[in-house]
Design a binder for these strands. Structure first.
Lengths: 337, 337
DNA sequence: AATATAACTGTAAGCGGTTACAGTAAATTA
DNA sequence: TAATTTACTGTAACCGCTTACAGTTATATT
């Protein structure tokens, strides 16, 4: 590969001039600029990023840590991130940490050694430990899809409110016995999706003067099968709910099929509501009424914010809550009784 | 951040020794090694990748170009890639090219300037132009999920054979009127998924002495709605197929719902077969009989091959065809008549 | 015409590492 | 004990770029 020296020699100028041309410095005469451009063209020269990074202490790269890219939810977020990074000439280094603390820190360490300009971090739970690491190493970071009590920039949604609204919607339809299928709760740490959504669910019931039945609260693993099994159990026995709120669409799909396999029909006997509004939620039968999360926007806005931070631009708000909304389709109707 | 000089000073050795320690050179005394390690520990020193990359002309980074990460199919492939890259201490730079030639070349150029050690390339159609670019720039590349007639390493599946097997399966069930919903054909270029699968479909019919009806061949866009519309049209009018083969699961889901919305039932009236075996294909009702593509393995094997190439290791086979298989579920049964 | 200014241009010192090569001290060998 | 070998260690050049600073022209000013 041609280097800056080759170009300088061929163009008959110094390497400083070549560098200036490629950095759009105004300190170059038009004549010199043309000579350099011509020489570069001839040699197929493009500046080497690693060399430039070393000299400028800037890599134009953003590290991206997500739990699992093969999950459609994160894939959509990442797409949003990549799109805006591409616009601003940033590159993305992708890391799958599987929500494992150890892997996360390992990746953070590695991204640091690679001098990434900043990190977009997406995890289930942003702990104090995370906070400390980012703070001590002075790493520019924005949290995607998650809020936190720590002083860290983020863009996410209000999970509590979203679940609250969802359950309220079901109640407004006339439902009084509403089940929930939530995700793993760990140690009931705050600000996990599952915890917040579960809280929102409970609060909605309370605010409407409805009782909370433990039998109607089931934990699953965010997978289809998990949703299926949880719903199956919930539907066993005498008293069953008239509606089930699954906090992910995938689990909701499992729930719908569990309803059918229990000899009941959806939505006639049991309404099922999802969360996320993934592409396929309109493909189920019945199509899924769900809470829509703006996944692409979460990614795009987070990336935009980070890039602004890197450029030292003014930022109005470091903690952004994007709006969720209820998408009404066919899986929820008023109960018969 | 501490540099190698800081460590050298603190440890009372030269930077060469520090470098040797971090490169596991045997040319260091145990005493010196300990001093260096201690000093590094104390300063929190880790070698800078950009500097190292410049000196060694190796970035330990692999460029990854896919059409669209938000498509679950590619997301799964990417996960496979990332997992093995992580094992071998490689990093991934992710690029979404949307199957646009221009974006692809732009990204290739950019990855080159970043001195990535190699590229894993996933596109719909690998053209001569692509071949030339990779060849001229002497870029190490492996194609994922795609075969080609050019002399380029790849790991993919045999789309022709896969479609052939799928249609054969339907025929073995007793179907004689089988429709296909394929993807965009462009200019009928070779080695596009769609073209190969369409050919496999036709060949299976021919080999079984069945007629090919144009009416039963519909083009769609790999989306749910596209599959739905294509199936709807196919089901209109007098003569309709008894089975529909959609070359992606998503389109198959559309087809299933089109069957229902036509007042027919699946699989009793119309069998529907998919392609890919994405996670959700077991979540549909009826669950989807489909051709399984080993997406994760495609990614993992491609990454492993590229890394071997980068290490100059021996490689048995530069062109690997992974096995597909028919996954029998409930959406296909024998026709009534 | 001499001087000041503007407009470029080049030299050289980094950026943080790797590594060839030369040097030194200790251990072996003769 | 001297010579040779072994086992480290350090010096310095280099990787390809940026940029401060010191020129060097050409142009404008007095």
């Amino acid at each position: 590969m041609a280097t800056i020296d080759d170009v300088a020699k061929l163009a008959g100028v110094s390497i400083a001039t070549v560098s200036r041309v490629f950095n759009n410095s105004p300190l170059v005469s038009e004549k010199a600029r043309q000579k350099v451009l011509k020489a570069a063209e001839e040699l197929g020269y493009k500046p080497s990023m690693p060399a430039r990074s070393l000299a400028m202490k800037k890599t134009n790269t953003i590290g991206l840590i997500v739990p699992d890219i093969s999950n459609p939810y994160y894939a959509e977020v990442v797409r949003g991130i990549e799109d805006v990074c591409n616009i601003y000439k940033y590159n993305i280094t992708l890391c799958n940490a599987d929500n494992k603390r150890e892997k996360e820190f390992q990746y953070i360490e590695m991204l640091k050694n690679r001098w990434v300009d900043g990190i977009i971090f997406h995890c289930d739970y942003f702990s104090e430990e995370h906070y400390e690491v980012f703070k001590n190493d002075n790493i520019k970071v924005v949290l995607a899809g998650r809020t936190t009590k720590f002083d860290v920039p983020y863009v996410g949604i209000d999970n509590f409110k979203a679940a609250y609204d969802a359950v309220n919607y079901l109640i407004s339809l006339g439902h009084k016995r509403i089940g929930i299928i939530h995700g793993p709760l760990d140690d009931m740490k705050e600000t996990i999706d599952s915890v917040d959504r579960l809280k929102g669910y409970k609060q909605a019931l309370i605010d409407n003067g409805l009782p909370i039945y433990d039998k109607f609260i089931k934990e699953a693993n965010f997978k289809y099968k998990g949703g299926y099994n949880a719903a199956m159990e919930m539907l066993k026995g005498e008293m069953r709910p008239t509606a089930i709120f699954a906090i992910s669409d995938i689990m909701a799909m499992g729930a719908i099929n569990a309803v059918f396999d229990s000899g009941l029909s959806c939505p006639e006997d049991i309404s099922v509501m999802g969360f996320d509004n993934i592409d396929l939620s309109e493909a189920t039968r019945p199509s899924l009424t769900t809470v829509s999360q703006p996944m692409y926007e979460i990614g795009a806005v987070a990336a935009r914010m980070l890039i602004k931070m890197l450029n030292g631009e003014e930022i109005d708000d470091y903690q952004i809550i994007l709006k969720h909304k209820i998408v009404v389709r066919n899986s929820c109707i008023s109960p018969k009784d």
